[in-house]
Every structure is written in structure tokens, then in C-alpha cells.
Computed example of a mutant assay.
Amino acid sequence: NWGHKQTDLRYVEDYRPHTKNQQLRILLHGPAGTGKSSFINSVQSVLLGRMYAHALADTTSGDSFTTKIQKGNPETFYPFVFSDIMGLEPTKGVLVSDVILAMKGHVKDGYGFDLESKLSEHDGFYNRSPNLNDQVHVLVCVVSADTVAYTSDEVLQKIRDIRKEASDLGIPQVALITKVDQACPEVNIDLKNIYKSKYMKEKMEQFSVNVGIPMNCIFPVKSYHEEIDLDDDMDSLILSTMRHIINLGDDCINIKSHSDQQEF
């Protein structure tokens, strides 16, 4: 809904989990270079109301890290956090087994992923007793519109394997299609063409078929990377996506909280 930026902005700003001190954890994964860090920076920019270009950790280095989203006061943060990990690669990259451990909350922040062997229970970065804040509540697969058609079968299989495990864990999943302006001339001219473009629809449908994520859980976005001022249309796409992510994550938190109470 173009022109409804303020409504979605207020929704994201006002979000509070029902449980006190609960955080909604969003795990980003996908091929390297698809714009995971740019999306996190863009969310921060929109919520601050000014351009934000903090140098996030280089996830190609293999370190995992968590990003808190700052409110107007540097000492206060939103109740949702982003966990980012190194990219998936056909033969290298992060191991699927380590992504699964991260979803379960076993990977501590700052862990340097080993490309040969998964995180061991004896490693200092292994969290033996993860709580609900450590666990992932939404899994977000990030792919680039200009390269999604060339994603290797090996990487697609890794995405499917991660998705299956997330489903078994009760974690909802969405996909972000980034760099839409670089892939489609119509969108580059006017971002409002993004849901009118046959090219973009074909890319979304192709990715949906390849990995099994339904179309209504695939969101095309344009992140800030060269702009110096905020743009209402870009903000609208980012905020609409965040609203859906928050709703899915909040449902996951409530279901897991209820399940934990029943077990107790």
C-alpha cells in the first residue's frame, strides 16, 4: 500500500512481545553478496529517520554477529534483533549443520564458523542451554534478483535443507529478493512498478518453486546502498516487509512460550 508508510512505521515502532524482556530474533542467511547487511542497515535507517551506514561485520570472514536496532536514544533498542552469518556457497561457506545450531540458539555471538566441521559442544562459543531469546523466531533467506536465476543446485539444496529443519522446529520462513533495481529496468525507473513487473514476478515464482517458500512469503525490497537521503517508496517496501516478519515471529514466540509453559 503505497503512501501508507506512517501506518507501517508506527506498527513496527510500537511492537512489543507479550513476554517481558523477550526479544524477537531474525536470522538472515543466503548466498554471499546478496545484501543481508544492507537490509539490516536499511531497517535501521528507516527507523531512525536518517541515513545509517554503520560498518557491519564482514560475514564473508566467517564470524556470526547479532545486530540490535537502535531507537532515538543510543541506549535503547527495539525488541527485535538480527542474527547474520556468513554466506552459503556451493562447496564452501557456512555449514548447514551450523545454521541449524544457530536456529536452535546454540551458537554464541562472534563464533567464527569452521568450513570443515560443525560447532562442537566443547567449543566456548557453544551455548549449552539456550533460552527463548537465543532461539530464532523467523528465518529469512536473502537472495539477489540479478543472480537468483543462476543460483547453483548445491546452494538451492542447502536452502531447502535449512528450510526443512526450520519447519520441523516450528520456525516461520520468508525470503527477501534484493537488488530489484539492478535486475529490472522498469523497477529502476519507478520502484512502484515492482509488483507490476512480469520479470520480477517470474523471478519470485522461480525461487518459490526452487525452494518451496510460498509467494506470499517472498518480499522484493530495495535496500539503501548508494542513496544519501531516505525515499518514501523504499521505506514503504522495507516497513511492509518488517511488519510481516514481526507478525510471523510474534506468533512463533507465543506458540513456543505456550509450549514451554505446558511442559513446565
Rank of each mutant, 00 (worst) to 15 (best):
W2P: 04
G3K: 08
H4E: 14
Q6F: 13
Q6M: 12
R10F: 08
R10L: 14
Y11H: 14
V12N: 01
E13P: 08
H18A: 12
N21A: 04
N21H: 13
N21Q: 11
Q22N: 12
Q22D: 10
L24W: 00
L27A: 00
L27D: 01
L28V: 05
L28N: 02
H29K: 10
P31W: 10
A32F: 08
G33F: 13
G35C: 12
G35I: 06
K36I: 05
S38P: 03
S42L: 00
S45L: 10
L48S: 09
R50T: 11
M51I: 10
A53K: 10
H54F: 06
A55Y: 06
A57Q: 12
D58N: 13
T59L: 09
T60D: 14
S61E: 12
G62D: 02
G62P: 04
S64L: 11
T67F: 10
T67Y: 09
K68A: 13
I69Y: 02
I69L: 07
Q70A: 10
K71H: 06
K71R: 10
G72L: 08
N73I: 02
P74H: 03
P74T: 02
E75Y: 04
T76F: 03
D84F: 02
I85K: 03
M86T: 11
P90A: 12
P90E: 07
V94A: 09
L95T: 11
V96A: 05
S97R: 13
D98A: 02
D98C: 04
D98H: 04
D98L: 01
I100V: 09
M103G: 00
G105L: 02
K108Y: 00
G110W: 04
Y111G: 03
G112D: 15
L115M: 11
E116P: 05
E121W: 08
E121R: 11
H122N: 08
H122C: 07
F125R: 02
Y126N: 04
L132K: 01
Q135I: 01
Q135E: 09
V140G: 02
V140E: 04
C141E: 05
T147W: 03
V148T: 15
Y150W: 13
S152L: 05
D153H: 09
L156G: 03
Q157T: 13
Q157L: 13
K158W: 06
R160G: 01
R163V: 00
A166G: 07
D168W: 08
L169H: 09
L169Y: 08
G170L: 08
V174P: 00
A175R: 06
A175G: 06
I177V: 09
V180I: 15
V180T: 15
Q182I: 14
A183N: 03
C184V: 14
I189G: 12
K192Y: 15
Y195Q: 12
Y199W: 11
M200D: 01
K201Q: 11
E202K: 15
M204W: 03
E205A: 15
V211L: 05
I213Y: 00
P214F: 05
P214E: 07
N216F: 09
C217F: 08
F219N: 01
P220L: 02
K222D: 13
H225W: 06
D229Q: 08
L230F: 12
D231C: 15
M234F: 05
S236Y: 06
L237V: 07
T241Y: 02
N247R: 15
G249W: 02
G249K: 01
G249L: 06
D251V: 15
C252A: 14
C252Q: 01
I253V: 07
I255Y: 06
K256Q: 12
S259G: 10
E263Y: 08
F264C: 14
